[in-house]
Amino acid sequence: MAQTAAVPAGGVIAEQIREVERARLRALVAGDLSAASELHAPDFQLVTPVGHVLSKDAYLQAIATGDIDYVEWEPGPIDVRVHGNAAVIRYRATLEVIFNQRRVPRASYWHTDTYENADGQWQAVWSQATAIGQITQRPVP
């Protein structure tokens, strides 16, 4: 099977994807559902840090109702791998969120997102967040 090479992380396309991700985060924090909707593919799915899977509609509805209210979402450097019309990004971010009217303390998370380019527009397709916590047991070698 032929392998395709990733576009270098410093390329123009990679920087475009970084800016789309930053715009997506700004829209989510601001509760700008119109902008957020444009930046998420119709079949978008989020896997939350506690393992729940949300569709685009369920995710944006939760933001609209205030069930999810991002207080802060500050991304660090965003690593990007581009393969044709698909890209994978990964970064560490600091988040503070109110979830179901309960404040989740400010914490760090790893984010891995898959983007696809449809008709010249990059949109998030899959997103997964992983909480970064202290190791409570000895890691397995």
Rank of each mutant, 00 (worst) to 15 (best):
R18T: 01
Q134Y: 05
D43V: 10
Q128H: 14
I68Q: 07
T48L: 00
N117K: 06
L95F: 09
T4G: 12
R22N: 08
G76V: 05
Q137N: 15
D79E: 05
D57E: 08
H52S: 13
P42W: 00
A118V: 05
V29L: 01
T114G: 08
W73T: 04
V104A: 08
Q45N: 13
R106V: 03
T130E: 04
Y91G: 00
P75N: 05
L28Q: 04
F99K: 12
A36W: 02
N100I: 13
L95C: 15
K56S: 02
D113K: 08
R103H: 11
D67Y: 07
D57R: 14
I63A: 03
G10C: 08
T112Q: 12
E96N: 12
D43C: 07
T114S: 09
G76N: 06
P141Y: 14
W122N: 02
Y59L: 07
W110F: 08
R26D: 04
T48K: 00
I68K: 08
Q137I: 05
H83C: 11
W122I: 02
A131P: 10
R106A: 03
Y70F: 09
I135C: 14
V71L: 08
A14W: 00
N117I: 02
Q137Y: 08
W73Y: 12
H83P: 07
R24V: 04
S55R: 03
G120F: 01
T94A: 14
F44C: 09
A86V: 13
S37W: 08
D119S: 14
G84C: 00
L60N: 10
F99Y: 09
G11F: 03
A58N: 07
D32S: 02
P139F: 04
G133S: 09
E38Y: 09
A129V: 11
A62I: 01
T114V: 06
D79C: 11
E96F: 05
Q61W: 15
P8I: 01
A87K: 00
T112L: 06
H83G: 05
T136I: 08
G31E: 07
Y115D: 01
L33C: 09
L28R: 02
T112Y: 06
T130A: 11
E19N: 12
S108N: 05
H40V: 13
V29C: 01
P49V: 07
E72T: 12
V29F: 01
Y109L: 12
W73H: 13
A35L: 12
H40C: 07
T130L: 07
V80H: 00
D32N: 11
Q121C: 13
G11L: 04
E19L: 15
A129L: 14
T130K: 03
L46D: 00
W73M: 11
A36H: 03
A131M: 07
V7S: 08
T65Q: 03
A41K: 01
